[in-house]
Every structure is written in structure tokens, then in C-alpha cells.
Design a binder for these strands. Structure first.
Lengths: 152, 152
DNA sequence: GTGATTGCAAAGCGTTTGCACCGTA
DNA sequence: TACGGTGCAAACGCTTTGCAATCAC
């Protein structure tokens, strides 16, 4: 089967597996372990980090399967790539529709936030520039409570 | 000399060359031609694009010199990397202190914008999350006036 | 003249592809 | 049982490094 439907999926690990299955993919051990690693991480992970962490539970995992699973999870909207001054190779669980991330510069802990109200800004920029604005990315960088307490 | 000072430089091509010189770098033909390519481009360019465009003026340019010049220009704050859903390998002239970009999804034309007022949002997110917010990136994607007129 | 800078070639590194074997459905 | 998925090895593309020749100062 090759009709990978883009049905909206929740963010719990079981929902991810259900979503993979519903999309016509088989639930194999490599996929399960990669999903678990990503779903339980508080920060974005790159392919090698996912590989190393997942191998603790499933030592025969291949790096290639990590890449192939990431590709599918991204297509299904279960993970998204995180852009960062130091690189753009890492992925985080969850997808809110737009890119509203809050990233700790200390430990990497990453959260989504909601409720920006930027419409006025967009309108002003649109008028001044002549652009039709379609999408936006807003990312905040800082220190999470653990990290700024530690640095005091 | 190895004291590459990070003095603020303007965005005109001559200012860039002055800035390179003031920072202890020699003004060579490869550097001049890469600077000109970047300074006159309306959109972000990756290393290969810069290489190809610059070679039209200086055919013996090597790709390695493009990479080495990009490294220096980035350190001096004369260019910055542009993050994009399709990749993060391209560079644009100018640096405003934070990342406020407006990018055309049609032709790639890229502009900076100013005057966001996100302090209230930051404060709210900080309170809700416990993060100390240090930096932010805001990028808008859309269609520039040329591209949305063309698509009508 | 001298030492920074160059272009070439080779190395490095992250990611993708080809393929025979394996395991889920 | 069929065929989607796997791990390995090799290929790939982009970027960096080593080096002798070159050129800006």
C-alpha cells in the first residue's frame, strides 16, 4: 500500500504507533524504539542521538532505519525539524501547525507555545513591503527554569 | 594578524571591503568578487550559487575560497545564514541584530523588517514557562509583490 | 620579501541508495 | 506466504583540510 494519509495524530506514543499503522506502515521493532525515543525526549534530537539512545533498548538497530523512520514521522506531521543557530538536523515531537518554539540554550529543552497575536504586525509588514504573508516562524531562545537557577 | 575585531559595518559593498581590511584581511580578487555577488543579490545564496555567479566575473575562482570568505563575512556580521524549510545553507547580506526576515516563497527575494513589538508576548511566555527569554527569531514567508501579481 | 591567501586534490562527515535477507501482517 | 522493512556496505553531496604555488602588502 502506498496511500500514506495525513491524518491528524495526537502526541502520545501509542497514538503515534496507531497513526503509523493507519497510514499503512508496519509496526516493527526499529520503528517502535525510534518513536519511543522521540516521544519521551524533552529536547530535539538528531539522527545520531536517536540512534545511540534507541540502541540502548535495541542494540541491533541500524542508523539507516532511524533516517527512514524520521522521514515517515515528518511526513505524518508527528515530528518537526528544529532550526537552531548551531544546526538544523534535529527533530522534536509534536506539530502545532506553525513553528512556535521555546528552546533552552542551556540544556536544549524545547517547548511549544501558543497564543501569539501577530496579526497587526503582519498587516503592517505586508503594507510596507507589498508581500502577501502566508506563514511565519517564531522561535524564542533562553534559559529554562532549571538552567537559570543553576547559573545564579 | 589575528585580531579580527567585530566592528559594525555598513551594508554597502565598499564598506564591506573596508571592514575586511580593517579586520586585518587582505583584499584579494576572490574576496572582492564574492562580496560583490552577495552585496548585489536580493535573495539568499548558497555556496554553489555564489561560486557560479562569481565565476562569471572571475573564472579562476575556487569553491574553497567561497567557503572561506563566507566564514569570514559571517564572523564579521556582514552576512547571515537564512533558515528555510528547504534548507539552511544560504546566506544573505546584512545583519540587524536579530533575525527578522521576510522571504518570498516564489522568487526567494528576502528583506529585513523592523519594529516588531513582541515584549508583551515574551513576558507572557516567560511567566507561563519559567524560561528567561534571551533571543528570538521571527521569519515571515509569503509572496512578494511581483510574485503575487504574476500568480493572479 | 614575507606571510596570508589561493586553487587543487583528498579527506571528512552526514545522509541516501542498492541489495540480499528478514519478519510483520 | 508475500512483500514491506531491515542492516550492511557503498555511493553521494556538501564542506573542510593539507599543501605547494601565488600574490597583496
Amino acid at each position: 500500500m502506498n496511500t500514506k494519509t495525513l491524518s491528524p495524530c495526537s502526541e502520545s506514543e501509542q497514538d503515534w504507533l496507531d497513526c503509523l499503522k493507519a497510514s499503512g506502515y508496519r509496526l516493527t521493532k526499529p520503528r517502535r524504539v525510534v518513536v519511543e525515543t522521540l516521544a519521551t525526549s524533552q529536547r530535539a534530537l538528531n539522527a545520531t542521538e536517536i540512534f545511540d539512545l534507541s540502541r540502548e533498548q535495541y542494540p541491533s538497530l541500524g542508523l539507516v532505519s532511524v533516517y527512514r523512520t524520521l522521514e515517515k514521522l515528518e511526513q505524518l506531521g508527528l515530528i518537526q525539524r528544529v532550526h537552531h543557530p548551531d544546526g538544523c538536523q534535529s527533530f522534536i515531537a509534536g506539530f502545532t501547525g506553525h513553528q512556535h518554539l521555546l528552546i533552552c540554550q542551556g540544556c536544549g529543552k524545547t517547548e511549544f507555545f501558543e497564543g501569539d497575536d501577530l496579526d497587526l504586525l503582519f498587516e503592517r509588514v505586508a503594507q510596507q513591503s507589498g508581500y502577501q504573508i502566508k506563514e511565519h516562524w517564531l522561535q524564542l531562545f533562553g534559559l529554562c527554569s532549571n538552567c537559570h537557577l543553576a547559573s545564579d
